[in-house]
């Protein structure tokens, strides 16, 4: 019972959906049957085109995320270990934190063009904030006693950094990644919905415009699965790399 219980609510919702679709009270467009959606899903998965659209979205999201991860971890570490850098950059990040970076997208289109680059740049910017802020928090809060002990035992600065600061910060870095990765997915889908000629966000908008709601929902399912898989992958990676610090969350 306890194994099926987590899926109870989702199952009930899907059942209610199918009943609504079959009841005939609503137009098929509003509640396409799960069978039709599954049909479209199979068509999507068997056509090279479908894989291509998914790959385009995934590529943009991961490219922006990877850039933000590299730059963000570096900046966050620097801010955490140097008061000067923190004094310079912290106001910049905390001051613009609440500003929706999406508003820059129209300008990014002019600067970087209509293709992938403007989207990757926006994803980079949106992902940068959580990664920098959470890494900074972690790097700043490294237990001083640990650093002192290492110094006492004659460890060099580089060694202290590699053996004390980084391991102590890694859980925070992953926490930042876990916030940023869904953000990357959100931004890639939004930007593709607003202005694009490919990618899953475009598939959703195009299917809606041609009133193919079953196809649209199939794309939604693909996006949902992709978001879920990326998160699972990250959790898996974290449990391999940060084996000494178990994640204390509900659903891992």
């Amino acid at each position: 019972m306890s194994r099926v219980r987590p899926f109870l609510l989702l199952g009930a919702l899907l059942l209610a959906w199918e009943l609504a679709a079959r009841s005939g009270w609503w137009n098929q467009l509003l509640f396409p049957s799960l069978v039709d959606i599954a049909d479209e899903l199979v068509r999507f998965a068997t056509a090279a085109e479908g894989w291509h659209e998914a790959w385009v979205s995934l590529y943009r999201a991961l490219a922006g995320f990877a850039l933000a991860a590299a730059v963000g971890v570096g900046l966050g570490m620097l801010m955490g270990r140097s008061e000067l850098v923190a004094a310079l950059l912290d106001p910049l990040f905390s001051g613009t934190y609440a500003v929706p970076k999406l508003a820059l997208f129209p300008i990014f289109i002019f600067v970087f063009g209509l293709g992938s680059l403007s989207k990757v740049a926006l994803i980079f910017l949106e992902c940068l904030y959580p990664i920098v802020i959470i890494t900074y928090q972690g790097a700043r809060g490294v237990n001083r006693v640990l650093i002192w002990s290492a110094q006492n035992m004659g460890a060099s600065r580089a060694r202290i950094f590699a053996r004390v600061v980084i391991p102590a910060t890694v859980p925070f870095i992953f926490a930042g990644f876990r916030v940023a990765l869904p953000v990357a997915m959100i931004v890639v889908i939004i930007t593709e919905m607003i202005s694009s000629i490919d990618g899953l966000g475009y598939v959703v908008i195009y299917a809606l415009a041609s009133l193919k709601t079953d196809r649209m929902l199939a794309a939604v399912v693909v996006i949902a699965l992709l978001g879920l898989l990326l998160d699972r992958g990250l959790v898996l990676l974290r449990s391999r790399l940060v084996y000494w610090d178990r994640l204390e969350t509900y659903y891992v």
Partner: peptide, 15 residues
């Protein structure tokens, strides 16, 4: 209730 929320958490809601 929670499992459904946590499973749909990483899904971009804008879709």
């Amino acid at each position: 209730f929670s499992p459904a929320v946590f499973m749909t958490y990483p899904v971009p809601k804008i879709v």
